[in-house]
Amino acid sequence: MREKKRCAVLTFHTTTEAMAMERRCQEGGIPGRLIPVPKEITAGCGLAWRMTAEEYERWRPELERLGLRFQEAAEMMLY
């Protein structure tokens, strides 16, 4: 049975920001994937970047260094 994990959900103002996140993360070996924005979150774009909370904590400095734009980072339990 799948278990929910504590995750970081990064939302975006635009689809282009989401695409930039995916491209730079893939290039840089940063974990995560695009998901539809969970209904609990309000965001400009319907795409969000999902990482585990631990991964986010670890990679957050690198995301900042890359200058990747996102709207906000929310924490929630996700499959």
Binding site: T15, M19, E22, R23, I35, P36, G46, L47
Partner: peptide
């Protein structure tokens, strides 16, 4: 930019 399934993500990419 109109969803999160495979084909729409392929378009956005």
């Amino acid at each position: 930019g109109r969803g999160a399934h495979g084909p729409t993500l392929a378009a956005a990419r």
